[in-house]
Amino acid sequence: MESAPWESELTLAMKAEFGDSVLEFSTHRGQEFVVAKADSAIAILEYLKYEADYDYLVDVTAVHWPKRAGEEFDLVYILYSFARNHRLRVKTRIADGYKPQTSVTVHLTANWLEREVFDMFGIEFAGHPDPRRILMPDEWKGHPLRKDYSIVQMDDAWVKENLGIESGH
């Protein structure tokens, strides 16, 4: 099932506000999402929070598409509006190595969520107040949720040094 174009009062207002920065308004299986240019993501999150009541950032996550040259990652912000009772996803496509602006300035909850995205995908957020790993050990090499990181791969040196065992593969 292909996603269909989505049009509503909100999309018209956003088109007027952001013009070409928003690439796509779509709906798939009854769920709406917006695809935007990477550098306008924070402006859009701010607009959605203060002008359209999307005041709850549910989740920040990423998807790795290594074969998509020049835009290897989808960065996904899931938003919810208590006033509208509506969920909305904002997606940006970014290149490997691109450093997106942090969204902690808009939503405090992004702090840990972006740390997890960095930990798992190696996407660094510019201006993040606490840019450390969160689930993996600080000295760990590699970012496990990238597609080029095999499921049996491990930071053997770290395991040996800190746990005193061979990693077993």
């Binding site: 790993r133 969160i134 496990p144 990181y149």
Partner: peptide, 10 residues
């Protein structure tokens, strides 16, 4: 945190 990380998403 992370002591119980098993990589469920992976």
């Amino acid at each position: 945190i992370g002591y119980l990380h098993r990589g469920v998403e992976k």
